[in-house]
């Protein structure tokens, strides 16, 4: 149900862009206004989300620990699995962000002889990593459309990415890898019954959207070409805030741009914000130092207390007359 709905939405988005550009001729809307709105929504949406998270106090240190806590000197401390200080946390976070270490664990569950057993699922880790690294590289590569002259490092990335030298324009590995990894993640989601059962439109929609973005990009680069110089004239116009739409850019470019705009707009309101959220997850970015430092809850209500001394002071005479022993005569 969720799958079909998401698919219909993405197909509708493609058709909207095609119809808008080819039939009505709304190049300026799809090429300038919508991308600007999308970028603004993305930036302010991300700022809003992160600043909102930053207002939540995290009074207690609640890291997920996967190893021996720092303890007595003769007990071996698991420094990365159970970091006790900033350095350990930084290493742990870096491994998490760059290598998805937590995905490299036992994530597959199965019932064997009526018992629940866990096993490793390295394909998910591999496809997830391939997907994210490719997407990041593709994103960085696209900066060539927003810089004149193109910085040297972008040329270097391009030549590394295309080192296979297949065809002209040369095949870029990350573009294909992005599409394949996204397809794998989709197939996995459908193929495993438990995963399929818990899948919602919010899971399928970004996958379909990204598959569509990668497909239109690949189509444009290798198959139904667009005039790349005109495309860059458009993007440079956007970047320098002098928007201008050159004539004769193929409709597929506007479809691609519209889908990317939708992704940018959708980003801050969806689970995709994990891009920022991964840095702010308390179960990862805190040190397990609860036994070394006292963490006081900032919103503790100032409780009015009535100590025993005060109590005795108040009732001493009555206590004495009832023969209740008192501490002070």
């Amino acid at each position: 149900m969720g799958m079909l709905f998401s698919l219909v939405v993405v197909v509708a988005l493609i058709l909207i862009a095609l119809f808008g550009v080819k039939v009505i001729g709304l190049q300026f809307l799809f090429g300038v206004i919508i991308p600007y709105i999308a970028v603004l929504t993305f930036i302010f949406g991300m700022l809003y989300r992160v600043l909102k998270w930053s207002r939540s106090p995290v009074p207690f240190h609640i890291p997920t620990t996967c190893g021996q806590q720092k303890s007595l000197s003769w007990i071996k401390h698991s420094k990365i699995e159970n970091p006790a200080g900033t350095l350990g946390v930084i290493i742990r976070m870096a491994l998490e962000i760059f290598l998805f270490r937590s995905l490299f664990r036992n994530l597959k569950s199965d019932l064997r002889d009526g018992r629940l057993v866990y096993g490793s699922d390295k394909w998910l880790w591999l496809a997830g990593l391939a997907f994210h690294v490719s997407f990041f590289t593709v994103f960085i590569r696209h900066l060539r459309f927003f810089a004149n002259p193109v910085p040297k490092f972008l040329n270097v990335i391009d030549s590394i990415d295309g080192f296979l030298q297949v065809g002209v324009p040369h095949l870029l590995i990350t573009g294909v890898l992005l599409l394949l990894a996204a397809l794998y993640l989709f197939i996995r989601r459908v193929y495993i019954p438990q995963v399929r059962y818990i899948s919602l439109p919010a899971d399928y929609f970004p996958l379909f959207l990204i598959i569509a973005i990668a497909s239109t990009g690949i189509l444009m680069r290798y198959f139904t070409k667009v005039d790349i110089v005109k495309v860059k004239t458009l993007t440079m116009g956007l970047a320098s805030l002098h928007p201008h739409i050159p004539d004769g850019i193929g409709a597929i470019f506007f479809v691609h741009l519209f889908l990317v705009s939708v992704l940018f707009t959708y980003f801050p309101f969806s689970k995709l914000v994990h891009m920022g959220g991964v840095f702010l997850s308390p179960t990862r970015n805190l040190a397990n130092n609860s036994r070394m430092k006292r963490h006081v809850n900032p919103w503790n209500y100032p409780v009015k207390v009535h100590t025993y001394e005060e109590y005795e002071e108040e009732f001493r005479e009555k206590m004495k007359s009832a023969d209740i022993p008192v501490e002070k005569e």
Binding site: F146, A239, L241
Partner: peptide, 22 residues
């Protein structure tokens, strides 16, 4: 962290604003 994010995401703009389109 947010400043780094903004510097990356607005890179196309602050490097191009005011420059004539080639």
């Amino acid at each position: 962290g947010l400043i780094i994010f903004l510097l990356i995401i607005t890179y196309p703009f602050y490097t191009n604003i005011g420059k004539p389109v080639a």
